[in-house]
Design a protein around this nucleic acid. Structure first.
Length: 425
DNA sequence: TCTGGGGTCCTAGGACCC
DNA sequence: TCTGGGGTCCTAGGACCC
């Protein structure tokens, strides 16, 4: 716990919508919505779209009328584009301090404790300016003595237009008034459930939450909630996480573009997610000791429902795709029931550990010491060079009835030569 | 017709052991 | 009538994040 820290949270405004806009300037001023996988719900909105009263999470089909009426521009999510723009932003931020944490695709925490002699608001304005100039993306920056307060300052920076996107909450003369004007649900770490609980018990604004009895908070919101309250009071409990620690589980799952009933189609989808999960595993130089597969029908539909899952412990930790495909196929056969319309299947790898830690086995060759690892490395190298899944397994099928919907996808402007934008003189 | 995907952390409670 | 106690490990579930 420390009292003398200073953090900035840099957050790209409406990141996905802004990325689309960078390469299609005619979208300036237009309401924009970005869809989830399968084009199901709105996951990101431009300010113009928010002003129309549309919220994150609303299903596309529910706003069809408004789309026509207000000329709303809708896009499928283009993660290749967003990922590439994100790494550009992060690279720029790293020039301003080596002491920073990439928190999500569009956010980073910067430790500014060593910069306290500077005018931090001016410094943040400069960061904002450079990011915008070099990438075309607008960001907001909040500054505070803890990560939680920096997040909150960022919220204020976004909401109040007079601040021009930068706000420093540290030692602010009107800090209490500001905290008192913000609902607890805006606090990092307070989700819908805890917000309800807090409201029920008379804690409505952030100032009230900061003054809540610590014992009660710990009892009702565990140590996580307690940390949040301490952070609101200026005691830093959540440090930067710089060395990205290896993942503890890897999940690959997607809803289907249309209902799937046949085991064969489910099997293809499971195979394809399995292959993807195994690739991620090897990228991190990890092996897995346990695989889980689950299936579920569409819970929103008024038709027979079924959901099930099963774990399988692998005899030895592995990252060899065929091992996982075999295990997954066996699980799927166990849990599949004929007669249901399936909406989604998923694969989860857990008990993940670094490949160098595989225990030596006297009798069975492990993933490390036989040729399986070499084969995987070859496949990964080829796919990396030639494009995703140029080389794959017959098990993923060729028809792919389950494939997800992406009907409104923009080009891969930054990562595919043939999609490069053309400048007309 | 159409409702996302991928993560993390914490706790309670059961199983098991001595 | 009496029927321990404590430690550890595991898992499921609930909360959160973007």
């Amino acid at each position: 716990m420390r009292q003398d820290e200073l953090f900035a949270l840099v957050d790209c405004n409406n990141f996905y919508a802004a990325c689309e806009r960078v390469f299609a300037p005619e979208l300036e001023g237009k309401p924009i919505g970005i869809l989830s996988n399968n084009d199901g719900i709105i996951v990101a909105l431009s300010d113009e779209l928010k002003q129309l009263g549309i919220n994150r999470g609303v299903p596309l089909f529910k706003i069809k009328d408004q789309i026509r009426k207000y000329d709303i521009r809708i896009f499928s999510s283009n993660y290749t584009l967003y990922g590439d723009m994100s790494s550009r932003v992060m690279k720029i931020l790293s020039r301003f301090t080596p002491d920073f944490e990439i928190y999500s695709i569009d956010e980073a925490f910067l430790r500014l404790s060593e910069f306290r002699h500077l005018d931090l608001t001016a410094y943040a304005r400069k960061i904002k300016h450079v990011v915008h100039q070099w990438t075309g993306l607008p960001v907001s920056i909040g500054i505070g003595p803890t990560k939680t307060l920096a997040k909150l300052a960022n919220h204020v920076a976004k909401r109040r237009k007079d601040l021009a996107g930068v706000f420093d909450l540290t030692d602010h003369p009107r800090k209490d008034n500001i905290l008192a004007s913000i609902d607890v649900k805006r606090v990092w770490g307070v989700g819908p459930q805890y917000a309800k609980l807090l409201h029920r018990n008379g804690f409505h604004n952030v100032l009230q939450l900061a003054g809540a009895p610590r014992k009660w908070i710990k009892k009702k919101m565990t140590v996580v909630g307690l940390r949040t309250v301490l952070e609101l009071n200026g005691t830093s409990c959540i440090d930067l996480e710089q060395d990205l620690d290896p993942k503890k589980e890897i999940v690959s799952s997607k809803s289907f573009g249309q209902p799937v009933t046949e085991l064969k189609d489910l099997q293809e989808a499971v195979n394809s997610y399995c292959i993807r999960a195994a690739q991620k595993l090897r990228e991190e130089k990890q092996v897995t000791g346990q695989i889980m597969v689950y299936v579920t029908t569409n819970r929103f539909k008024n038709e027979p429902q079924y959901a099930n899952y099963e774990f399988y412990k692998l005899p030895l930790p592995t990252a060899y795709t065929p091992d996982l495909l075999q295990a997954a196929a066996r699980i799927l056969k166990n849990i599949y029931r004929r007669g249901y319309k399936y909406k989604k299947v998923g694969v989860m790898l857990s008990e993940i550990s670094p490949e160098v830690n595989i225990p030596p086995d006297l009798f069975t060759p492990t993933y490390l010491d036989d040729r399986r690892r070499v084969i995987m490395a070859c496949m990964d190298a080829i796919n990396h060079k030639m494009g995703m899944n140029k080389l794959t397994y017959a098990g993923v099928g060729t028809v792919q009835n389950w494939k997800m919907k992406r009907e409104m996808l923009t080009p891969h402007y930054t990562t595919r030569w043939q999609d490069l934008p053309i400048v007309k003189a």
